[in-house]
């Protein structure tokens, strides 16, 4: 059973369809506590950093996400969800993120490459994750203007990096908490495999 964190900011149908395609049923959040108690949680980030954080705070979800991750319960974040784990973002100055990972999310510099990055790009994994076990270097789908940078302070979180004019953090992981900047639900078979690994894994061991 997987619980989808829908905070009413937009389209999460693709994630829902992908989960169904993989043969799992989807639970909804009814109270903020469901975020903590869910067996497996997927948090698809939709909208701007500021909008997502505002919704999470209004609904009382923010503190439950932090509690869940601190308790090392299975968590998978997608796109802006990865960014919300940081302290803040240039996209929404003055809005605090969840603050689990030190650092600020930055905007891709203009002029060097097209912004937003819309398209397929590879990832280079920097450590082991059961979610990336069968990953063979396929390109994955990215849509974003803002990125997490590689810093010493956040180095232990870096699961994978990607080159888009500069090298940025395209996946983070600590224990059972994983987040992807790319969209596994839009990355064809390679992405579906990562979702399937998350859904199928038992999480008996934490790494």
């Amino acid at each position: 059973m997987v619980t989808l964190l829908d905070y009413g900011a937009g389209n999460i149908r693709s994630v829902r369809n992908a989960i169904k395609k993989l043969g799992f049923s989807v639970n909804e959040i009814k109270t903020p506590e469901d975020i903590f108690s869910a067996e497996k949680l997927i948090f698809p980030g939709v909208g701007s950093f500021g909008l997502v954080m505002q919704r999470l705070r209004e609904k009382g979800y923010a503190e439950q996400i932090i509690r869940r991750i601190q308790a090392d319960k299975p968590f998978l974040g997608i796109c802006v969800a990865l960014q919300t784990l940081y302290e803040g973002s240039e996209e929404s100055p003055g809005v605090a993120g969840l603050g689990l990972i030190p650092g600020q999310i930055k905007r891709f510099p203009e002029g060097k490459t097209a912004v937003p990055q819309i398209g397929w790009n590879g990832i280079t994994s920097q450590k082991f994750s059961p979610l990336l076990e069968e990953y063979k270097g396929e390109k994955l789908y990215f849509v974003h203007s803002y990125y997490a940078s590689l810093t010493e302070k956040s180095a232990d979180w870096t699961l994978a990096t990607t080159d888009y004019g500069l090298e940025f953090v395209s996946a983070v992981k600590r224990g059972n908490c994983t987040a992807f900047q790319f969209h596994p639900e839009k990355s064809g078979e390679a992405g579906l495999k990562m979702l399937a690994n998350y859904l199928a894994s038992s999480f008996a061991e934490t790494v």
């Binding site: 149908r13 369809n17 992908a18 169904k20 395609k21 789908y141 969209h183 639900e185 839009k186 990355s187």
Partner: peptide, 8 residues
Amino acid sequence: AAEDIFIP
């Protein structure tokens, strides 16, 4: 289409 197409 969204039910079985997992690309943008």
